[in-house]
Design a protein around this nucleic acid. Structure first.
Lengths: 214, 214
DNA sequence: TCTTAATTAAAACACCTGTTTAAATTAATC
DNA sequence: GATTAATTTAAACAGGTGTTTTAATTAAGA
């Protein structure tokens, strides 16, 4: 290995921030490399293509988040009583907030990347995540299902995606919403506060009894 | 007026479909005009710019949806008893499904456009909607607040945006989710079925008591 | 019908995109 | 210290973008 050994890291750091706040296709390699203060061609040299850079950015977070999240969920399973939905969702708070230790603003960056990826990539990210982290994912789904046994699997499938939409859309607009909330209600929430607001909302929605609509 | 009088309409029809399924920045004017079978320059001639075309596409739906939605909400207010959250949200079903009469697949196109707009436009759409349709919007917010008086205004602000995220993200991924649901659970849902699934979820989340998290 | 205005059409414009090339430079190995 | 490999650099490439221009065509008004 040679050269300033952190060129790859500089690119990843600059890219994830820009991707999170403006989206993948709205972020050019020239913008990334100028913010990272590296040469344009270094992206293709180190990552091969922009698409693979996007994958690398996401993987750097998923590789940290997924295992620790799954561990937390399994820890809940060991408890004598079944955990409540609120507890299960809350078990994700620590893994999420730990991403702030990995990098400044890591939590919200990760959630924003997730949202951008789901919406922009037309299913590619969904496929990538389920094939690479399917084990961890089903641990989570099983825990939720066990905690809300009155919800049939197909209905649970939809509700968990509602949940994903709730958190991901919220985080994508978090900055804008926070500004409005601050000026209209004098509130000032950080990422953790927003997560703690959204969990009861999601838990209630996931568990609400299925009714044949009037 | 002269020429094939429906050039503007042809552009709008082609644009909204492409915008909804691939996003605004991923859709080029050349793709739009080729699908619409009109000349490239006609977009700038009739709309001035791509940005104004986007606005026109959204306005064509909002101008139909917003008034009828507000009318439905007001009708609920006239009832002797306060409407439940489920009833309020359900009051939006008819205005939404009526968009299918305006154009084939109008309902899902509108919701997808809304989601794309909120996420891609970095607050521009939010500003546009609140300034142009603020009256209708606050009618809705008031109805919801009256139906869940135990939720403080600031909390309600957040929960209604959670709700927006839920529906909008769901619709943006509706096609992909439907495919998975069909292959994994043998389900086949149309737009209305998904809307009817999501309403109880949202209503439960909006109304859940506020708790100081453990 | 003739004239004027509105619309359509083809081409070019200026700029931005991701990627590749080939030379210069830096680091590692013998 | 010489040689080899890894990395960085500047430049060019090929293609796509929204927009503008200029001329041809079509419709409308006198």
């Amino acid at each position: 290995m040679a050269g300033r050994t952190d060129t790859k890291t500089r690119i990843l750091d600059a890219a994830e921030k820009l991707f999170a706040e403006r989206g993948f296709s709205e972020t050019s390699l020239r913008l990334i490399t100028s913010k990272a203060e590296v040469n344009l061609a270094s992206v293709n040299y180190h990552f091969g293509s922009k698409k693979e850079l996007i994958r690398a950015v996401l993987a750097r977070y998923l590789d940290v988040f997924m295992p620790t999240a799954a561990t937390e969920i399994k820890r809940l399973h060991l408890a004598p009583e079944h955990a409540s939905l609120n507890e299960i969702f809350s078990a994700l708070i620590k893994p999420l907030l730990d991403l702030n230790k990995v990098r400044n603003g890591g939590t919200i960056i990760f959630l924003q990347l997730l949202g951008r990826g789901y919406i922009e990539s037309q299913g590619h990210l969904r496929w990538f995540i389920t094939t690479h982290y399917g084990q961890h994912l089903s641990t989570f789904v099983q825990a939720v299902s066990a905690s809300a046994p009155h919800i049939p699997p197909a209905e649970m499938f939809w509700r968990l995606h509602f949940t994903l939409g709730t958190i991901v859309f919220t985080m994508a607009s978090a900055d804008a919403l926070n500004e409005i909330a601050a000026s209209d209600y004098g509130e000032h929430n950080n990422t953790e506060a927003i997560i703690r607001k959204v969990i009861p909302y999601m838990a209630a929605g996931v568990a609400v009894p299925v009714t044949s609509n009037e």
